[in-house]
Amino acid sequence: MNPAPPSPVSIHRPAAFALAAAVMLVPANVLPIVDTRLAGDARSDTIWSGVVELHESGLWPLALVVFLASFAIPVFKLVGLGCLLVAVKRRASAIRRPRALTRLYAVLDEIGRWSMLDVFLVAFLAGVVRFGEPAMVVPRVGIAAFAAAVVFTILATRAFDPRLLWRDQQPAAARPFDA
């Protein structure tokens, strides 16, 4: 028996959430996410300029972490989800490499939450740096858009049913030495 419950919703929901995430990534990357005023250093940062600034100030391991969390992971998740959806949607032939795709899904499922790093970072800094005029961190609307995008990617991964990948496969039968 193959207990996959394939219903039309199981493709539409992840696809819709993934599209919503992609849409939200546009304002998230275009708009400033945070305004920082620290001792004569007043600036307005987008996600990308924050990464560049970290890199330029010599904190490249940090820049890499933020780059992965805020840039690479959301994009990778959307591309990966796209691959999974296309693979499931194509009915003409059986899904060719269900094992690899299942592993891809497991990875997507695991890494999605780390995208929230930037959101928590801004929230924490805004709570700490409140010195008034000389030092202030003010969250901007871009971070809300980014948080929405992350939530949508997580919802999309949750909505995707990996058992669809195994729709055409025979369940493995008990082999003699299993008994």
Partner: peptide, 28 residues
Amino acid sequence: KFGNMRTGDFLAGVFALDQHGMPLLAVW
């Protein structure tokens, strides 16, 4: 900073988001 002490904790970050007009993000 500048002889000023500030402590930051989890809830301070949440309240800061709310104060800057992002109550939904604060709740999140």
